[in-house]
């Protein structure tokens, strides 16, 4: 199993400040930790994940030119959204969890009463 090695430059590299990875919300660090743990457990391969991440970002880039047309707002670039999408894709492809199960759980969590703070 190849040891996960985070890119530090280029498209697949996570945002860093002061050399450290920057998480702007707790879910981002959880998604990151989940990915790394799945690699360490051998459930997914880092190289597969990385390839999917590059694909996700590539698709976004292709759909959103660096210089938007006059009057158009530049599309917000959200690295961790791409990360999460890549992870979901790989997990469902590997059969670790079906897309239906995931959608069901997301729906159930969305129904929770306000004030739930986890």
């Amino acid at each position: 199993m190849s040891q996960p090695t985070l890119d530090t430059e280029g498209h697949a590299a996570p945002p860093r400040r002061n050399g450290e990875i920057v998480f702007e919300a707790p879910w981002q660090s959880r998604a990151f930790g989940l990915t790394m743990s799945l690699c360490e457990a051998g459930a997914i391969a880092w190289s597969d994940f990385r390839a999917r991440l590059i694909d996700e970002i590539g698709r976004f880039d292709a759909a959103n030119p660096v210089l938007p047309e006059a009057g158009a707002e530049p599309a917000p670039y959200a690295y961790w959204d791409h990360w999460l999408a890549a992870l979901e894709g790989l997990i469902t492809e590997r059969g670790l969890c079906s897309a239906e199960d995931l959608a069901g759980r997301v729906g159930a969590y969305a129904e929770r009463p306000h004030g739930h703070d986890h």
Partner: peptide, 23 residues
């Protein structure tokens, strides 16, 4: 995104594929 990340983590830990402590 936060909901999806939480759901993914819950499903995979429930199935014993990874542990919360490892994450």
């Amino acid at each position: 995104a936060a909901l999806r990340a939480e759901a993914l983590e819950a499903l995979l830990t429930e199935r014993g594929i990874v542990t919360r402590e490892a994450i």
